[in-house]
Design a protein around this nucleic acid. Structure first.
Lengths: 247, 247
DNA sequence: CGTAAAGTTGAATTCTTTCAAACACGGTGG
DNA sequence: CCACCGTGTTTGAAAGAATTCAACTTTACG
């Protein structure tokens, strides 16, 4: 993990047009950037933080993919959600307390660390509002996954996950046509959707056989968008809600 | 649903010592209470809002129990979480957008409606900070349930739910000794834990037979606290995190 | 080129669901 | 006071989805 201070790096960041980063850029001053924003590079496999760590503030993912996951006592891993560029992660209720989950890069990533304090609530109320917004977004995404996991079959869960990722990548300009990056291992999917690796394997196989999508070289190609939607149902309205919207 | 304005009602509210309400009370002025806090009474069965509604601000539960739930297209219901007194609910990323879920009273309840606007972020940054805190808490609770549901058997899920509720009720002074109010129907539990009503019934039966707890007249008595803990595992640290803590 | 990690396959088992039906309880009205 | 009704709970038996265990194949990478 390398770190550096880089004044005005936000000005050229690909995420600057959206969400928290947009608001951040709008209210950015040297003071803020110098003292409260730290930039890091994390190679694939590295952790931004580990379950049980404690730290101040929170992170924003600049590029790459990360996974938030929690290890249970029995050693099982629960993937809480994947983090795409522009997303905030690591924001906790009590910043003194040990974190509930780990944040691990599954690709080489760039990360920003924001030293959020209550002081910034006062000096930057628009950032505070944005933080409330972002937190509510994360909650919503988790609730969507919870609903899917509780109520749908393995096929449907996988289809949901693919569509959800696809739409969020598209909004970020990170997919071309029907092709999206797909760095998730089958084990990641299993730990995310409450299935076993073996069953994920069989399910992926079935969905590919049905011509819904194909996966090669860590890239997923959607072959039957409508078919996927039918499998998932029209949760369109909320699907891309996770996205850090403009304004 | 009746509504009224009542100046300084917060001063005698049983939730005034904790969480958002504590901060609210500390910064309370007539201006704030008059224009931004509206009090409601909801009889059992009534909705504070329904999935798809949109409204400004958010709610705080003053007394009673509520359930947040979402109906899927197929007509299945997902209970996202129960709401205990002192908890915030209905806070959404985009307040213009239709809500993702419904909020229904399962007992006679008192509810406060707070007309939160970005303006209040500026005038009351401590409330904004508290809101960030509360939102992160809800997220954490949802993540805990997600983890349990993905990784544990029906027995363990039910045990978890009972313990989680018990601890939060205790913190609020709403349980005496090992007895807690338990207004949940078996169907509610099923919809909350991703099981069928029938299987919840059998599971409850099994847990009662094992002498872990008993249920009579909408009250649950814990008979073997340690046994329950063994079933759940020691997630103590985070268990009562949901609680709107002091300070 | 060789080792570890990731993916694949089969068969048997287990947990949970589904369907169908009966029971208990509280409230209502005759 | 009792029959009736609806909601919530209980039980049985069969079917189904996902897991477990064990082995094998492929891919990635130093």
């Amino acid at each position: 993990m390398t770190s550096e201070y880089s004044l005005k790096a936000c000005v050229i960041c690909p995420n600057r047009h959206y969400g928290f980063c947009l608001t951040l850029l709008q209210t950015l001053d040297n003071e803020l950037e110098k003292h409260f924003i730290k930039k890091l590079q994390l190679p694939a496999g590295d952790f931004a933080f580990r379950q049980g760590d404690s730290f101040h503030g929170f992170f924003i993912l600049k590029s790459g993919w990360m996974l938030l996951s929690r290890l249970t006592e029995e050693g099982k891993r629960q993937v809480l959600r994947p983090i795409l560029p522009g997303k905030i992660f690591g924001l906790q209720p009590d910043q003194q307390a040990p974190t509930f989950y780990s944040a691990q890069a599954i690709q080489d990533t760039d990360v920003c660390n924001i030293s959020w304090t209550i002081q910034l609530c006062t000096t930057h109320p628009d950032l505070a509002m944005r933080l409330i917004w972002a937190s509510a977004c994360d909650k919503l995404v988790t609730e969507m996954y919870l609903t899917q996991i509780c109520q749908r079959s393995a096929r449907e869960r996988v289809a949901f996950m693919v569509l959800e990722l696809f739409r969020n990548l598209k909004l970020r300009g990170l997919s071309k046509d029907n092709i999206m990056p797909f760095p998730l291992k089958q084990e990641d999917i299993a730990d995310m959707l409450g299935l076993t690796t073996i069953h994920v394997n069989r399910t992926l196989h079935a969905l590919k056989s049905d011509g819904l999508f194909s996966i090669h070289q860590r890239e997923l190609t959607i072959l039957d968008y409508e078919g996927l939607c039918n499998l998932v149902g029209s949760i369109d309205k909320y699907m891309a809600y996770d996205y850090p919207m403009k304004s």
